[in-house]
């Protein structure tokens, strides 16, 4: 096996270097680096729990080799908002009761953010399609859809006034 390589990563605005073997997935690297908000559900690209943004676009980190994202901008759900400073999607998920066990939530929020980046005024089909790679076993998706619709409106409003 090839040697580990020092890879420059930008995660949630923080620049760091990590020694990474060529076959390591981004999911493994992120969790090794302490980004536990990136969840492992299947390691096969079936469930979407490990989704992160690469330059604003949602990808399954379990299907991405870390070497391939060197120098790109990575964002986890904690990078969207944390503590007192919540992202509108996070606020909407909390207020709508769209979170149950919560294991799929980071991936759902990442997938929704990726969609809203290019489709700020999504219809129901846009939302369904955007979330179709993210499995949730608890909520039946109904409150998730409502939260995404609501957050989209808040974000559009924010853009107008901001």
């Amino acid at each position: 096996m090839a040697e580990k390589k020092l890879i420059a990563l930008e995660i949630n605005g923080r620049r760091l270097e990590a020694s990474v073997p060529p076959n390591q997935t981004l999911l493994e690297s992120l969790r090794e680096l302490g980004y536990f908000e990136v969840k492992s559900g299947c390691e096969k690209g079936d469930c979407g729990a490990c989704a992160v943004l690469v330059d604003g676009e949602a990808i399954d980190s379990c299907l991405t080799l870390t070497w391939t994202v060197e120098g790109r901008r990575l964002t986890t759900v904690a990078g969207l908002g944390s503590g007192e400073h919540l992202h509108p999607l996070q606020t909407a998920f909390i207020e709508h009761g769209a979170i149950q066990c919560g294991y799929c939530t980071p991936g759902l929020i990442i997938a929704a953010q990726s969609m809203l980046d290019t489709t700020p005024n999504p219809n129901d089909e846009d939302i369904r399609l955007a979330l179709s790679g993210n499995l949730c076993r608890c909520t039946g998706y109904t409150k998730v859809f409502a939260a995404v619709r609501d957050a989209a409106a808040v974000m559009r409003e924010g853009k107008r006034s901001g």
Binding site: E37, I99, G102
Partner: peptide, 21 residues
């Protein structure tokens, strides 16, 4: 009342630690 659950913020921001974390 349909209050926001106490466990929701940690799950929404990813700060909640599950068994594997």
């Amino acid at each position: 009342r349909p209050l926001a659950r106490t466990d929701a913020p940690g799950k929404a921001t990813g700060s909640t630690r599950y068994g594997g974390d």
